[in-house]
Amino acid sequence: MRPFDYQRATSFDDVSAGQIIAGGTNLLDLMKIQVMTPDTLVDITRLEGLSEIQAEGEGLRIGALVTNSALANDARVRAGWPLLSRAILAGASAQIRNKATTGGNLLQRTRCPYFYDTSQACNKRTPGEGCAAQGGAGRMLALFGTSEHCLAAHPSDMAVALTALEAAVEIRSADGETRQVPMHEFYRGPGDRPDIENGLGKGDLITAVILPSPHAGARQTYRKVRDRASYAFALVSVAGSVAMEGDTITQVSLAYGSVAPHPWMDHDVVQLLQGETASNALFERAADALVPDSAPHPDTDYKRNLLRRTFIATMRQLTGPGDTAGTDIARTQG
C-alpha cells in the first residue's frame, strides 16, 4: 500500500476530506495492489445513525453501514424480501459479509482483470489510457451497456436484488440535503468516462437504502450461475419476483447481474410477461427479447445462451407448481 493519512469521521462534515472507507473489503484489496492510491482515508464506521434497519411505512430503511450479514439475517428481510437475503448470501464469504456494508457493496469496483492489473491499459483506472480488455481475454465481461472505452461488468449480487425490488439509494450531500435515487438510476453507463460509475458528487454520502413495501405472496428467487459452487462472482444471475393468479402472471420484476456495468433491467421483457399465462413458449419469447443478437467481446458470447437458459429456468421456478429449493414466498409480518 502507498502511505496515506487516516482520519476518523466524527460528523458528516468530515466525509469530504478524502476517500471514504467503511468495510474496506474491496478498497483495501485494491490499495494493496495500488489500483487505488488515496492520500487520505476517512473512516465513517463510527458515524451514528447509519447502522440500523428501521421500519419505514411498510418498507425498510437500511442504514449504509449495516453489514451484509446483518441485512441478510434480518427477520423482516427474510420474510418480506427473501430475494435480498438470498442474493447477499450468494455473494462473497461469511467473513467478507461480516465486514462489507450496504453502501460499500453498491460502490464496489469491477473485477475485470485489466482493471486489477496496473501493467495493462484501463480507462476505468486511468481515463484515456485505453482498454486492454478490447482484444484481450474476458469471459467475465459484460453483454449489455458497454462502450468502446469499457467492457467491464458490475459484480454485485446485492445490487441486482435491490434493483429487482425497486429500492432507492438515500444520499446526503455536503450541504446536508438528502435525496433518494431509484436503484435503476443510481449507476451510469461507461460512455467515454468509465471511471465515473454513478451519480454521486463530491461530498455526497450514501446514508441508506430504502426498500419499498414487500409484494406479499410473490415468489422470489436469486439464481446465480458461477464457475464454482460458492465464493465466486456470477457469470450470470437473475433476481426475480413473480405474483400469480392461477396461471396468470399478475406482477413480475426482474434484474440481471454480471451482464452489464450495473444491474440490468429490461422493461420490454416485463411488458411481455405481465398479465400473460405462464408457459414455456412465453418464456422463450421473452428470452428472445432479452438476449442480444451479439456480444461486445467474443469471450462473452457464451453468456447469451447462459442468460437465456438462466432466465427461462428462473421463470419456470417462479411460476411452476410446488416448492422449489431456493424459492421463497414474500410475506408481511403479522
Binding site: 472507507i21 484489496d29 473512516d43 464506521t45 450479514s69 461480516n98
Partner: peptide
C-alpha cells in the same frame, strides 16, 4: 465475536 479476514482489516479502524 464475528469472523472476519484480518488481512482486510486496518488496525487503525
Amino acid at each position: 465475536g464475528q469472523r472476519v479476514n484480518s488481512c482486510l482489516c486496518l488496525t487503525a479502524m
